[in-house]
Simulated assay, not measured.
Amino acid sequence: MPASTTCGFRVAGMFAGVGGLEEGFRRAGHSSSMLCEFDPAARHVLSRRFADAEISEDVRALSALPDCDVLTAGFPCQDLSQVGRRVGISGPNSGLIGSVFDLLRKKAVTPQWIVLENVPFMLSLDRGRAIRLLAQEFESMGLSWAYRTIDARSFGLPQRRRRVVVLASKAHDPRPVLLGVDEGPPAPFKRGNHACGFYWTEGNTGLGWAIDAVPPLKGGSALHIPSPPAIWFPRTGTIATPSIEDAERLQGFEPGWTDLMDFDPRAARRRWRMVGNAVSVPMAEWIATRLTAERSHFVEQDAGDLPSEGSWPGAGWGHGGRRGRSLASEWPVSRPRQHLASFLRQRPTLLSRKAAAGFLSRLVASSLRYDPKFRSDLQDHVNAFGRP
């Protein structure tokens, strides 16, 4: 175990957002020395929540990385997201990860660990160019790496949030850390009377449907407006959206984490964007805990090499001059499930008539399959408002 872990790792966070990765590391006993974030509202949150950390504004303006044991970077996903621009890793936002690699190459002593996070669509977009570029960058600096798609539900949160975590190191083998434990996905279960989350901004080609969970919280819709997911409560027929405080909790933050009243009382919409863009705190805490856990030699069933062309699978690694697939599932652990309806602490807000009617009209016109009771409750919800 590295000597520095006795008093905790020093963490430097790039694209820190509101500190999801860094808060997870703090809960595991580590501390952040420097955080870099472009959004002024998010920087305000960071300055309040990480008072001892130096706060920087633009990764492109940094002349050097501070001395640190761990470098975290949940880099922008706008160009890599399935619902984003899809221009790829060279896009104006996601391409900023290049600045991080430039800083790493200038560093005389590479951090012990590098932790990246982004959306799973990057494994297939543009034939997997993004994940290949990350692998090539790490290998050019002599680092071993591993990546894994992880679902936030693995940690008991009722949010279906799948994210790719990439872990790299020059001094350590990242495979036992990230791939060495696996619970496997739980058996699927029927809807029953469980609350179900969906995207009310969709309805043409998808629903974002999630049983006993919400779909991934998003920074905004294609219309660039805050878009908290809606929730259908079959027991009562209610169609509503969660409060921002419960959305924070769905990401693993304490309620009120992103409060901006002392920054801009009119900035409520910014909170939804910041929460939607955040990294799940329990997932980050699990990663941080794994970095200092006792680990046996990595042994995995041979799943073959990573493909030289085309998309990459949900997990893989590069070590000792070889690249390999991994059979690791999206569920490294399986913590007790928290049911969505009982997880919410605040009364949800009824979805507006305009939003519900628009979604219903798109749904009916589509070829999507859906529960007849869901449609019936949607129609009743719209009718209950009366005519506008």
Rank of each mutant, 00 (worst) to 15 (best):
S366R: 09
I55N: 08
S63N: 08
E300I: 06
W232H: 01
L350Y: 08
V299S: 12
H381W: 06
G95S: 12
G88D: 13
V281H: 00
L134G: 13
M261V: 10
Y199T: 04
S63W: 09
A64W: 14
V164E: 00
G304S: 11
S81R: 10
T238G: 04
G256L: 05
V18R: 00
A42Y: 02
Q251F: 00
R161I: 00
S361E: 14
R127K: 09
V181T: 11
L363H: 15
A12T: 10
Q346G: 00
G316N: 15
V177L: 04
M261P: 05
C7L: 15
E57H: 14
H30Y: 06
G180C: 02
P348S: 09
L207R: 10
T236L: 01
R148S: 00
R60N: 11
R345F: 04
P174H: 15
L217G: 01
T292Q: 12
A51T: 06
L104A: 05
S31A: 12
V382R: 12
N204S: 14
R26F: 01
M122H: 14
A195I: 07
P66T: 13
P186V: 05
S81K: 06
A41L: 08
R322D: 14
H44D: 15
S140W: 14
G208M: 10
V100W: 06
I239K: 02
G220H: 06
D305I: 15
Q251H: 03
G203R: 10
G314Y: 01
G8R: 15
V164M: 04
P265S: 05
E300N: 08
T205S: 09
S63Y: 09
I89P: 05
W286E: 07
R347D: 12
K354M: 13
T258E: 05
S280I: 03
H319C: 08
D212K: 01
Q338V: 00
Q379M: 10
M14T: 09
V59M: 11
G316I: 07
M274D: 07
R175G: 04
R369F: 13
R323S: 14
T241I: 01
A240T: 11
F25Q: 06
W272K: 02
P336G: 15
R86W: 11
H381L: 03
H172A: 05
